[in-house]
């Protein structure tokens, strides 16, 4: 029973990361229809920027996090402009290939600057809490709380603010939104900035728990795509629920079946879902 609760806790923690990263991806993939395959790599870059800010300039955890979010939001804007915007009206595959170019640059760039080895970010909250027989490190608990706060804030942003509703308008009807005087280019930039900025926050929160390495983004990026597809393209609740489900599947599968194969469960789940419902779990029929 204790093991079970512990795995659930780990699953929720993993799921919080997945949910935030998938949320950012569903904005650009589901709403802008850009298969930003470099999303996981931008997440990785976010962790490194925090690492750099802390080790090189001796900044604290939170200032480093904010700098990372800012830098990555900027990076997102640049990537959108250079890598995806020229391919906007072309087949999906072209953007996908362009994305592969971008992720090669990002990963190699990080290797060149910081080396291929893993690094550790000092843990700002190393204490533990005992609850219901579970041992929870404060950092993990904090990650879950911050994730929930970010999800709520993002929801409020999209539903209640002018730029947020503009994003939704573009999602529903690009031409219509343009006729209404919405600057689609600006919305694309904004969406990318939010997407990569939130990914950087998630990466920084996770970094003290696991090591950071140039390869950390690739797998996560793929999982984010899986979640977005499972949750239904562009569906924000789908991304959140999907993120937590995947986290739980991995934690329980890894704990009870095989830790070596824990990543196989996620990918297997995707293949299975696509076999049953090609448009994803919450995908809709189009007229």
């Amino acid at each position: 029973m204790d093991l079970f609760l512990q795995q659930i806790f780990n699953g929720v923690m993993l799921g919080s990361t997945y949910a935030i990263v998938a949320l950012g991806l569903t904005l650009v993939f589901g709403i802008l229809h850009i298969p930003n395959f470099a999303h996981g790599h931008l997440y990785m870059l976010g962790a490194y920027v925090s690492f750099f800010a802390m080790t090189r300039y001796g900044l604290g955890f939170w200032p480093a996090l904010f700098i990372s979010v800012f830098v990555l939001a900027l990076a997102g804007v640049v990537v959108e402009f250079l890598v995806y915007r020229p391919l906007r009206d072309q087949p999906h595959i072209n953007s996908f290939i362009s994305a592969i170019g971008a992720l090669i640059i990002l990963e190699t760039g990080v290797v060149v600057i910081w080396g291929p080895q893993a690094h550790r970010i000092p843990n700002p909250y190393p204490g533990t809490i005992e609850l219901l027989g579970m041992t929870m490190t404060q950092q993990r608990l904090l990650l879950i709380i911050v994730a929930i706060i970010m999800i709520v804030l993002l929801q409020i942003f999209i539903k209640k603010t002018t730029p947020g509703t503009a994003i939704e308008a573009v999602a529903q009807n690009r031409e219509g939104a343009m006729l209404m005087g919405i600057n689609v280019n600006r919305i694309s930039s904004l969406t990318f900035a939010i997407s990569t900025g939130t990914a950087a926050a998630a990466a920084t929160m996770v970094a003290p728990i696991f090591m950071i390495s140039p390869a950390m983004g690739a797998l996560l990026g793929m999982k984010a795509f899986i979640i977005v597809i499972l949750g239904g393209l562009g569906s924000i609740p789908g991304a959140i629920v999907g993120g937590y489900i995947l986290g739980l599947i991995e934690a329980l599968g890894g704990g009870y079946i095989s830790a070596d194969y824990k990543d196989v469960f996620a990918f297997g789940a995707l293949l299975l879902i696509l076999a049953i419902k090609p448009t994803g779990l919450f995908g809709r029929e189009v007229a």
């Binding site: 298969p35 087949p91 899986i226 990543d263 990918f267 696509l274 448009t279």
Partner: peptide, 20 residues
């Protein structure tokens, strides 16, 4: 299962399979 999907879905699904 994967070729029933279109565009990016197939790319992502095959990528996943490659990882598996």
């Amino acid at each position: 299962p994967t070729l029933r999907t279109r565009g990016s879905y197939f790319a992502i699904a095959t990528l996943c399979f490659g990882v598996i």
